[in-house]
């Protein structure tokens, strides 16, 4: 088996983790077990970073390991990199507690 492209860890995932650097326009092989598909990288995405395997609407859950890793802070197109610029963590957010009962 040639380990290239990007890895999905659960069927529910809407992102995959790059196992090699992807240049813009590259066809990235998306692997989940033995199943494969392809997504065109919309931009330069380095090794270890995440690529959206579907369009993800603003405020929708971003799923990896079959679990929620955060919320889309804006609309994300298939093939875009998903990272802190378009994903908001929801847990441990003391900054969101400001203005709460004090």
């Amino acid at each position: 088996m040639i380990a290239r492209g990007a890895l999905k860890l659960s069927e529910k995932d809407n992102v995959a983790t790059l196992l090699e650097d992807a240049a813009p326009g590259t066809e990235v092989l998306i692997r989940l077990g033995k199943e494969t598909g392809t997504v065109n990288a919309g931009e330069s995405i380095p090794f270890g970073f995440k690529i959206a395997v579907t369009d993800i609407a603003k405020d929708a859950a971003i799923i990896k390991y079959g679990e929620t890793i955060g919320i889309a802070s804006r609309d994300i197109k298939q093939g875009e990199m998903v990272h802190i610029h378009n994903l908001e963590g929801a847990r441990g957010r003391g900054d969101l507690m400001k203005g709460d009962a004090k």
Binding site: K64, Y65, I69, L87, G89
Partner: peptide
């Protein structure tokens, strides 16, 4: 972690 591709505490924890 963030420079290594991890985007949130949840993602770090699940890994």
């Amino acid at each position: 972690n963030i420079a290594g591709g991890i985007s949130s505490l949840e993602e770090k924890s699940l890994g």
